[in-house]
Design a protein around this nucleic acid. Structure first.
Lengths: 199, 199
DNA sequence: TAACATACGGAGCACTGCTCCGCTTTGTCA
DNA sequence: TGACAAAGCGGAGCAGTGCTCCGTATGTTA
């Protein structure tokens, strides 16, 4: 997570050359395009070419592939994280909130070709991606999960980290095969979380 | 699944040169070693070197990486497949049998570094591996699942294929991280399968 | 405009998967 | 036993990757 100054916002970020800012923007746009087409593990050269910059430039702005992926999806991950407390406040019960929130996360993952795979890849260069998702989303999930446990809707004993990784794993391979629907399995997993007797 | 004549058994497989058989055996042994050390996606060169043969030889015997992986693990997969009916006969209930059988499968996967990852990799060269596992194990799982549904222990609506892939996915990344235990999540998944009221 | 820090670009290296074909080994048959 | 196909072998070599390095170009500042 080295660069990404300005959070893709409007502040000019003084002391940064204009062409550098321009290139970073071009890179982000190009990457977003290419990720849709070829997945998040598309060749670096392809992204650089699409952005009209050289190899060196892409690595200077995004030292790790994960940095680029994170930068591209940061907004959506952030939105997902912020939705947690909101759902907890608006839903009928903590468990309902948890279910809706997990649904949000699953929707995000399955619509990004290859993201789920990358997320649990032991490949170097994706470690930071993994870390970012975990750091940002596990606390949110924990809050929802704890609330559901406190409300007696969910058996204690499951940690948010494990749940998140499980859900992420279930989302792998969810495109193109009608016989495999991550949503159904995630639903099963959540059902397995429930307390037997909801008095 | 082109070669593998003789199922690594003792029959000489007439009409096959002695050195070819020898090399195939060496290759299987070397691959088994290397898979433990470096995972099933170890460099082909490494396996060839370990076996003391050239690149050409490995590709002649095992045109696809999946062919080699399947050949190495065929015995264990076969054993797992055959355990299905046996468990159904011996266990207290169909659901118990299903749970034990899934446990067997999970144990197999998590002890093979990288196998679970390879299994759901969209990488070419692993497709045949995927196919083999599905073809061999899904019918077994289906038998157990159907029995559990018939016994009223499990809600209908889940297909064996989906369950198998879900379980396989959950097994990814199960080594080295004490915070992620595939077994716990698989247990959750199975619990989610159960019928609410077991009259 | 001059001068300097900053950033760019892509040649190049290392490492893969996989193929191709000249050479070697094996089995057979007289 | 010797010779000769056929079967099999080996590894050079190509193509596609990730990532680095440094000579060159560009922006910025005075």
């Amino acid at each position: 997570m080295v660069p990404t100054t300005g959070e893709s916002g409007e502040m000019p970020a003084r002391s940064r050359r204009a062409d550098a800012q321009r290139n970073q923007r071009k890179l982000l746009a190009a990457a977003a395009d290419v990720f849709v087409t070829s997945g998040v593990d598309a060749p670096v050269r392809e992204i650089a070419a699409r952005a009209g910059v050289g190899m060196g430039t892409i690595y200077r702005h995004f030292p790790t592939r994960a940095d680029l992926v994170v930068a591209v999806y940061r907004h959506q991950v952030e939105a997902c994280a912020e939705a947690g407390p909101a759902l907890l406040a608006s839903a009928d019960s903590p468990f309902a909130a948890l279910r809706q929130w997990v649904g949000l996360f699953v929707d995000f993952l399955v619509t990004k070709h290859g993201l789920a795979t990358a997320l649990q890849s032991d490949n170097d260069g994706f470690e930071a991606l993994h870390t970012y998702f975990i750091d940002r989303l596990v606390p949110v999930c924990e809050q929802l999960l704890d609330a559901a446990v406190d409300a007696g809707e969910v058996r204690p004993g499951t940690r948010a980290y494990e749940l998140m990784r499980g859900v992420g794993n279930l989302c792998v391979g969810g495109d193109g095969d009608p016989r495999y629907d991550p949503r159904r399995l995630v639903e099963l997993l959540l059902r397995g979380l429930r307390r037997p007797r909801t008095s």
